[in-house]
Design a protein around this nucleic acid. Sequence first.
DNA 1: TATTTTTGCTAAATCGATTTAGTTAAACTT
DNA 2: AAGTTTAACTAAATCGATTTAGCAAAAATA
Lengths: 340, 340
Amino acid sequence: MKRTSLNDIAKQVGVSKTLVSFVLNGRGKEFRISDEICRKVLDVATELNYQPNRLAQGLRTGKTRNIGLIIADIANPFFGKLGREIEQEAALNDYHVIFCSSDENSEKSAQQIAMLQQSQVDGYIISPPMNSEEQIRALSKTQVPFVLIDRYFPEIESDYIVVDNFDAAYQATAHLLRLGRKKIANLTVNLNLVNMKERTDGYKKALEDHGIRIDEALIRVLPFSHDNRDVNMAIRELAGDRKNLKADAILFSTSKLGVMGIECMSALGLKIPDDVAVVSFDNVDAYKICVSPVTVIGQPLKEIGKTAVSLLLNRIADPATKTQHIRLKTELIIRKSCGS
Amino acid sequence: MKRTSLNDIAKQVGVSKTLVSFVLNGRGKEFRISDEICRKVLDVATELNYQPNRLAQGLRTGKTRNIGLIIADIANPFFGKLGREIEQEAALNDYHVIFCSSDENSEKSAQQIAMLQQSQVDGYIISPPMNSEEQIRALSKTQVPFVLIDRYFPEIESDYIVVDNFDAAYQATAHLLRLGRKKIANLTVNLNLVNMKERTDGYKKALEDHGIRIDEALIRVLPFSHDNRDVNMAIRELAGDRKNLKADAILFSTSKLGVMGIECMSALGLKIPDDVAVVSFDNVDAYKICVSPVTVIGQPLKEIGKTAVSLLLNRIADPATKTQHIRLKTELIIRKSCGS
DNA sequence: TATTTTTGCTAAATCGATTTAGTTAAACTT
DNA sequence: AAGTTTAACTAAATCGATTTAGCAAAAATA
């Protein structure tokens, strides 16, 4: 059974394909096609199970109704959920999403941007990896709209939507301080990106504001490779000696680190929150059923997704609008991992 | 900066676009294009940052190098990881994946198949929701290759790749029995799909083989909506009365159920494994740092992904090959949730 | 020298839609 | 009856690539 084209319908009905196109686009009235012919065309279209060829449509109209999405890793629950929200919101607007996982690797993202360009996507939603500034700058020049999510480049004028990472980390740290923790560590990852920087900055500011000296030894920046040994080493150094803990609390800047970290802590026999209190960014499932359910900084994924799509579609509709910078609040979800 | 087409290059170099196409496809030698012209064309192509229009290519050649992927939900870690493997394996073969989340809803999957058809994908990898048999049958008729994953329809002749769910559940149940559990419950979901059926069948067979009467009251089939109250109710009925437990172990047929179930159990103050032992399908992160790390049935996601892609690409290359049915073994990863 | 072969290139068709600019016949004006 | 409007439809161009068929000039061969 080979595909049905406009021409096939036109032939079978005995009219021009122009007419068929008009009718199938619901513009029969507008072009004064007689009701009888309209009906016939529609009948034959369903009879032959006509499916428009989106390549041809896209080629002719210059619009694909596809948007490209570049995130770090669709298998990471944070991005998985965010991606899902974006997919859903796009679908509501009759757009489809092409997913790409960059692994925070700028060479991959460059390839992916090129591929998406070649696919003639109508716009992009991008969580840009580090060292991708030039790609993003080049993308601006193509005039195809894009919005950045999760992070952004301060020097590039573009739409973006992020959370207030500084405030989030500040609040989380303040929460730990309020509960009497003094030696609060921060485990983060060596991605040179604003969002990670803001998290550590918020953490530092909270300490400062509470009159606590910042101890750089308590700030551990781990390689993105997420090797178990690195995490293990860091945890060991911070809390390995139970009588003489260097840290009595840890703020994890990502859930991936947090999950690995807690796994290590369990293996080392460290008790949460008795030995060490824990707060982590991102409200992933794992934290709900954890040894001691983990207090987390929840991001409003649904709102991020919805807003990203709506910003993008607005800009597609009107490329001239002023760029928007949106910063959403997070929510500190208090569970048991910090004691009380 | 508007897009560069073959014609733009042709004009600038002063040759025909035919020649440009030959050169850019690396077929310069084959068509005896002089080295000098070749060089010029390539230079101008990079100078103008030429990006081939994949819509036009696809339209002309009938091949898009895109494959459609329909899974239940990209935000579900099981499908997220599987999707990622598929994306990666496809990329190695210079194919791209268009993700669709069906939510196990056959109307959505029907729409998605239609959309993918319209997008002229070269093939599909589908985890078909229930009631989608007719869609899949119709898809066969289009002659566009597809492979089913995670589940399949016994009455439909097609490639598929699944795990041995029967054996997996059998082994898990046997493991619980070996550890002395007698009243083993099975929490599953009301998806009328072979994989779920096989899981419960394996569970039953293990009980039978160990001379234990099957108690239908211990098999709880919950609605797919995954409402917290349903899970809560089920857990309560099975283990609510601690002195008089109806079940001393639970086999969760999905990790989504398992995570919710364990959350309930914690809330009810039930101890794992002391009060109730737990085994679950799917090795998700949450189980690693759980109150009592959970013994799980791990699926070989990488292999499933690789095999799905390679089956599909083989069939794209040669549609005539005999259909293949692949059933991979799972791995029982023993942790602490069953005691010892 | 005449013929054939090779070299190096191009014109035009094609994929399947959309859209602009008509065309013809009927109906309506005046 | 002649001119104008309207109704109902179509031809052909177009998007940007690929590919088939073929052309002219140069080189090789007879």
